[in-house]
Design a protein around this nucleic acid. Structure first.
Length: 639
RNA sequence: GCCGCUUUAGCUCCAACAGGUAGAGCAAUUCCAUGGUAAGGAAGAGGUUGCUGGUUCGACUCCAGUAAGCGGCACCA
């Protein structure tokens, strides 16, 4: 007999070798139905894995996040079995559960296409019908290596497992896989799944190694849950900024203009200009000085800054003229350093905060380019703060708070904050451990003092220093960097930047790189997705559409109204086309214009307006004065 | 960059094609109609089927190459 301590603290005695399945049944039949796996002490057990000693047991039910993971992991195995039946030469890399499903990496001479997904699904259903048990066995390292001796992928994985780790394999019918578990115990538990896409993926995520074929899928406990998830995927597509950007005439990409080189259309540029003005004002208030420096610079400049040795691959190639090499600028720090250097600085001058709205060019890998999200020419407000060491904390914090203000004003949400640190890959990072330690500990203690939750990302730092990155999630569920604050002790060294201290001696300033809200391109992609194209009034390209009921009778009043709005800096447009009212309303709604004003006799006679807000059905009539106040308040409060 | 897929009118499109040089809706144009909140009617027009080459009597259709786009992977100072 062994003692099993349950979740509620009670202790029960069972025969040695009891399983989660039996314990669940013993507790209640409804629990048995819902149970998927169990935690035994801190290890995840399958339903049918024997428990051999006194243990703490927590039953994992379908409602637990862990159960979704187990189900998807098992579905990955099921898929692998089906793939192996269809393509017997198939060998498998890794096949984990992921946030919304699973994938499995497959090596086979057969090129898996869209049509194959249906065939694989069919085979999977066959295996489910066979009600194949999934059973666990533990092997020694030697046995495992022998078992997988013809499988280079699994052999490699086994060799990398720690010496003392038990090696488990799972068998379902003729299919055997190296796997930690847990699993659902029998393929019959897998019911509602769909294979979604095929992709290429490097073995071990290493671009120097071979590429496998990856199949993505998703698996759920109920039909509704699966259907709901598929609907979510559809909805994501509907708010894809590339689709919305085209529909709303925000930007244009053209192969003749160049890959990743976006053109801003009038609607898009209007929004961008509002953002630029907003940021300019925000920065002025925060003590930044704006400068402007060229897009083209000498290669020498980037040699001095250190970018040439660390970043050359991501720059457009050199242009040679008059015995000088020029490059398109990929970032602003070197120019800002030169501007700093242009006068003698006193400790009293610091901090000096330079901001610049500027276009930068980066040679992004062609496969990385995605609409406005990843481009090769981008315009942004880039800033560098030149500070004394004793000002670092205060200035990093101020920059961080400025970022929060902007993100809040724009109605965006932070997904998480990341502290990017170096690792010991000396080639990747500037080599000065003392400075690194100082910079990293400063950022860390600042985040902790301010109670800012963060995730440490070792090896993700910039080559010149650690950084705090603010990550957001796109509609397509990509995580991208929105804002960044980076500490840099290297740039001041490389440019020999100084200030005169109160001791009359030269001292080294520290540079803080600050990316406020990414680039206008990326920001636009995020805003489009965030608002599904329906911009808040203060950002909307067109804020008001004025629609006279009858052009002849009401056109003059409508025109006068439109002029008044424009005088108040409200982006109003007049629709005088000879079309039905309903047609014009529909078009204004489709264009997601925040307010449509219909002007007829009633409005003309009472000096009023009747508006209909985007997405709403009701009509509201207000006096002209009241509407002016209303719309201006909307804009002022960034609604 | 790598793997796979896609590319037909300004836009959208599982229109078409065992290989016989293309079709719809919307938009645009013209005409008619037109007073209250999501598409009034009619007509005509619009295409070297991404590009280059090959196979063929004949290619949107098959093949090769190339470009861009899409899904991922790698990359993202």
């Amino acid at each position: 007999m062994i003692e099993i301590r349950l979740n509620d603290g009670s202790v029960k005695n069972y025969d040695k070798g009891i399983t989660i399945e039996h314990i669940a049944k013993d507790l209640s039949s409804s629990l048995a139905k819902k149970s998927i796996a169990g935690w035994v002490n801190d290890e995840l057990y399958d339903l049918n894995r024997p428990i051999l000693s006194n243990s703490r047991v927590t039953i994992v039910t379908k409602d637990d996040a862990k159960a979704f993971e187990v189900l998807n992991h098992s579905t990955a195995h099921l898929m692998a079995q089906a793939v192996k039946r269809l393509y017997p030469d198939a060998q498998f890399g890794v096949g984990p559960a992921i946030k919304e499903g699973f994938y499995y990496d497959i090596a086979t001479a057969h090129k898996i296409g869209e049509e194959d997904l249906a065939l694989i699904e069919k085979e999977m259903r066959k295996i489910i019908q066979e009600q194949t048990p999934m059973s666990r066995q533990v092997l020694t390292r030697q046995e495992a290596l022998e078992r997988f001796e013809n499988d280079p992928f699994k052999t490699e994985l086994i060799q990398e497992l720690p010496e003392d780790e038990p090696i488990s394999i799972y068998t379902q019918g003729e299919f055997v896989d190296l796997c930690r578990g847990g699993h659902v115990g029998n393929t019959k538990h897998i019911k509602f799944f769909k294979l979604l896409s095929i992709a290429g993926a490097y073995w071990r995520g290493d671009s120097d190694r071979g590429m496998l074929q990856r199949i993505y899928g998703t698996s759920w406990f109920t039909k509704e849950a699966l259907e709901n998830h598929l609907k979510v995927l559809e909805e994501r597509k509907a708010r894809d900024h590339r689709k919305l950007g085209k529909e709303l005439r925000i930007f244009e990409l053209n192969r003749d203009a160049g890959q990743g080189l976006a053109m801003w259309l009038p609607n898009g540029y209007t929004v961008r200009k509002v953002l630029e003005d907003y940021v300019y004002k925000l920065e002025r208030k925060a003590g930044y000085k704006h400068i402007s420096t060229p897009i083209l610079g000498t290669k020498r400049l980037y040699e001095i800054s250190g970018h040439w040795s660390h970043y050359r691959e991501n720059m457009f190639p050199v242009m040679h003229r008059d015995g000088e090499d020029f490059v398109l600028r990929p970032m602003s720090c070197p120019h800002h350093a030169l501007v700093y250097q242009s006068e003698l600085r006193s400790y009293r001058d610091l901090p000096i905060r330079y901001a610049e709205i500027v276009t930068q060019h980066r040679y992004e890998a062609s496969g990385a380019l995605t609409g406005l999200e990843r481009v090769r020419a981008m315009t942004l407000t880039d800033a560098h703060l030149f500070v004394r060491e004793d000002q670092i904390k205060e200035e990093v914090l101020a920059a961080y708070n400025l970022i929060l203000t902007a993100i809040q004003d724009l109605g965006l949400e932070i997904d998480y904050v990341e502290l990017a640190l170096r690792d010991h890959d000396k080639g990747k990072f500037h080599d000065n451990d003392a400075l690194w330690d100082l910079a990293e500990s400063m950022l860390k203690s600042l985040l902790e003092e301010e109670n800012i939750e963060y995730i440490e990302m070792v090896g993700e730092a910039a080559f010149y220093g650690p950084k705090i990155d603010i990550q957001v999630r796109t509609a397509m569920d990509h995580v991208i960097t929105m804002s960044t604050v980076q500490l840099d002790f290297l740039l001041p060294e490389n440019f020999d930047l100084n200030y005169i201290g109160n001791d009359g001696e030269k001292h080294r300033p520290v540079v803080i790189h600050r990316g406020l809200i990414s680039t206008w391109e990326r920001l636009m992609s995020i805003l489009l997705e965030q608002y599904k194209g329906a911009f808040p009034t203060w950002l909307a390209p067109v804020q008001i559409k004025i629609i006279p009921v009858n052009t002849e009778a009401h056109g003059t009043y409508a025109k006068a109204l439109n002029d008044q709005f424009i005088d108040l800096d409200i982006r109003s447009e007049l629709d005088l086309r000879e079309e039905k009212l309903g047609y014009k309303i529909r078009e204004a709604q489709t264009q997601k214009i925040p307010y449509q004003l219909v002007i007829g006799d009633e409005e003309l006679n009472n000096n009023s307006v009747t508006y209909r807000a985007y997405g709403k059905k009701e009509q509201v009539t207000l006096s002209l004065e009241a509407f002016f106040d209303f719309i201006q308040a909307q804009i002022r409060t960034k609604k």
